[in-house]
Design a protein around this nucleic acid. Structure first.
Lengths: 130, 130
DNA sequence: TAACGCTATTGGATATAGTCTAATATTAGG
DNA sequence: CCTAATATTAGACTATATCCAATAGCGTTA
């Protein structure tokens, strides 16, 4: 079996069909966490890692901090600096009313999305007789 | 009710929570179509529009043609020029063995993805009491 | 025949989401 | 003091998709 005839060939080693490039849905995932409790960036990273959100891959810190900044710019979340305890200063984020409404929209959006993905999977299965 | 307190405010009019920025999963969608029959780009566009894949939005031609080029570069699909019939020349694409294996991988990936999205939706619902 | 619309493909610039690498800073433990 | 863990940020880059524009063949119709 030649390497060219499967998605593990050099050129396709990181083919999207393995899930590497799927949207991690960081915005709704972060809103869900913050709807339950206020957290700072680093603890959000750890919470997302626990969830095994990333197809076994570890979370990307930079991406999460960038998403937090963007959500803050849009008024979905706000933060206060926490200097009290031990360790470096932390930005403790909490969700706003706008963020809760955004999360409510996300529920409908994700349900539609799930149906689309379900339909695709069923169609692909029937074609390949899987 | 102020405009600032919902996702329809100017700044958030095209908020991702409405689904505008979701991955359209063009790669697997195109592979599914081509696993059933060979097609040229423009007919793929029309087929995807019929599916209402895009949250009611119309398909973006450029994106579909770019995805076709990428899939072709990676050996998932191949094309022949069709000059016979009326109209401009068409690139008729057909799926390769590698493309079929890629689609098979996509089935597992999409099933995992669906479960992740389902879990997120349920969690968000329980938090918001929806 | 000129104008228009449909079919069919491509290119440039931009947007959004996320990754990789590196840097900075505080503090606790050995 | 050195290192590891905690905590945040910046620059460059990749993947996916969008918006606008251009090109080109062909049929209809005014």
């Amino acid at each position: 079996m030649s390497d060219k005839n499967n998605c593990t060939s050099d050129a396709n080693a990181k083919c999207s069909c393995k899930g590497y490039n799927l949207d991690k849905l960081l915005q709704p995932n972060i809103l869900i966490l913050l709807a339950k409790e206020s957290l700072h960036g680093y603890s959000i990273i750890q919470a997302l890692e626990k969830k095994d959100l990333f197809f076994g891959e570890k979370a990307d810190n930079t991406g999460i901090y960038r998403t937090l900044s963007k959500l803050e710019e849009r008024g979905m979340i706000r933060f206060e600096w926490e200097l009290e305890n031990t360790g470096p200063a932390k930005k403790v984020y909490h969700i706003t009313d706008e963020g809760l409404e955004c999360l409510s929209n996300w529920i409908d959006t994700l349900e539609s999305y799930r149906k689309i993905i379900e339909g695709m999977t069923e169609e692909a299965k029937s074609i390949l007789n899987k």
